[in-house]
Design a protein around this nucleic acid. Sequence first.
DNA 1: CAATATACGGAGGCACCCTCCGTTTAGAAA
DNA 2: TTTCTAAACGGAGGGTGCCTCCGTATATTG
Lengths: 177, 177
Amino acid sequence: MRNREILLKAATEIFSAGGPQASLEAVAKKAGVGIGTLYRHFPSREELFEAVYRHEVDQLCDLALTLGHETDALAALRQWLQANVRLVATKKGMMQTLQLAVYGNPQLKASSTARMVEALDMLLKRAIAEGSLRNDISAEDLLRTLIGIYYAQPEENWQAKALKLLDIFLDGLRAKA
Amino acid sequence: MRNREILLKAATEIFSAGGPQASLEAVAKKAGVGIGTLYRHFPSREELFEAVYRHEVDQLCDLALTLGHETDALAALRQWLQANVRLVATKKGMMQTLQLAVYGNPQLKASSTARMVEALDMLLKRAIAEGSLRNDISAEDLLRTLIGIYYAQPEENWQAKALKLLDIFLDGLRAKA
DNA sequence: CAATATACGGAGGCACCCTCCGTTTAGAAA
DNA sequence: TTTCTAAACGGAGGGTGCCTCCGTATATTG
């Protein structure tokens, strides 16, 4: 099953650079694999999109798990949110791809959202428990805010602005001393 | 220049049914026009997407203008918001198409948003002036809420749920008697 | 060391993309 | 009305990518 992961990685790179309309043959080539192999693992373009999507979500959830062992819970939370922004910022064509995947499959979206909320909830609860965050915000609200920040997406220098917005928002969330 | 409009209409129908990856030859065929004619009017797929996008925004802005003459300003506002929901609901593949257009061209998004805000602002101000709406919400906020409702997009029976959310929200916005 | 099952590669038929150029149409000039 | 010309049109065709299918290679089992 090694090829599956190689293909996934190649697809991520190709779609990041070229958007969702990039050639699947380019993906196979980048993976050093025949086109037939690609289609055996991912019988349709949609399934490849969805697999890429799931993989991105997996990585974020894994990261949350790792960060869950940090001693400074607030810093961990900030790092995770920043990782979200960076993921979007570094992969230009990827957002179109993910967007497409999500529109084509509402239950994929539902399940991914649930997993993201779960991951975020854990980090959030830890920060609240350690006393560095006010306790009147839910993971759903925070995620929605994050999406709002993505969605705003001003044309230039987006990453810096998003990171700044994030910091401002997190400052607002701090428990009063 | 008649053909341009015929093509735009055909494209709207084809993309609504088949999503953005639908064949441009199908669009030309539906319009009863040669493929060459399509490409003369819209030199690239992106430009066709963008034209469709602009056209949808135009229609909403025109509608707002018409509704601006209604005597019941609150009802007019509600109708306009409902029209937004219906537009999304009746055109399955269209959201993917518009999404794609907007991701590929940030300034198209910026200008369309501005126009939508302007249209909405007019309706909103009228409702506030007539005294049926509280005055502490901006058109931007309302539009963002609308987008939030779109984005939530639960898999089934989305339209009914969205319309209901809208009503609840509008009730919350009413000026107290 | 077979025999069988599983995974692979890529040729090929098909659809679609977009360009290019010969044809048609509309409107001005004679 | 007829002729001329410029703008608009249509669609053939070369190229690319999609996806299937089947012959080949590698792993597994007896």
